[in-house]
């Protein structure tokens, strides 16, 4: 029983560390990337994975409990709301006419139609 607990604790701690790492990447991305659109990339993806991972780790640790359901609900909430919020902001800015930053010198892909 205690070995099972040890394994569970280790897995949960690993998940939390992975989550913390992605949060850190999100922060670095938000600070370093050149324009709003790229920052939204870092913000939505890394925060979703980070929060989901930490919440999953804690849910594992809690075991079977009403709190676990709440944790899973929170994870689903972040999973749905984070990209939606990012998209809403990006759409508002795009319709407001902010041009995406492109690497100076060459323009790849199709332009804005």
């Amino acid at each position: 029983m205690s070995t099972l607990d040890a394994i569970l604790n280790t897995v949960a701690a690993l998940l939390c560390i992975v989550g913390a790492f992605f949060f850190f990447v999100g922060t670095v991305g938000v600070l370093r990337l050149p324009d709003f659109y790229s920052r939204t990339h870092a913000a939505t993806k890394c925060d979703t994975v980070g929060a989901g991972s930490v919440l999953l780790g804690l849910a594992l640790l809690q075991g079977f409990d009403p709190a676990t359901l709440k944790l899973l609900l929170l994870a689903v909430l972040v999973l749905i709301s984070s990209p939606t919020a990012g998209h809403a902001l990006a759409r508002a800015v795009f319709r407001g006419g902010l041009e995406p930053w492109t690497r100076p010198g060459h323009r790849t892909g199709g332009g804005v139609s």
Partner: peptide
């Protein structure tokens, strides 16, 4: 831009949640 600030506040909110 204003959007950057809103985005940053959103991220801070997610972190606070965790």
């Amino acid at each position: 831009t204003v959007a950057d600030r809103i985005l940053a506040v959103n991220i801070v909110g997610t972190k606070t949640l965790v």
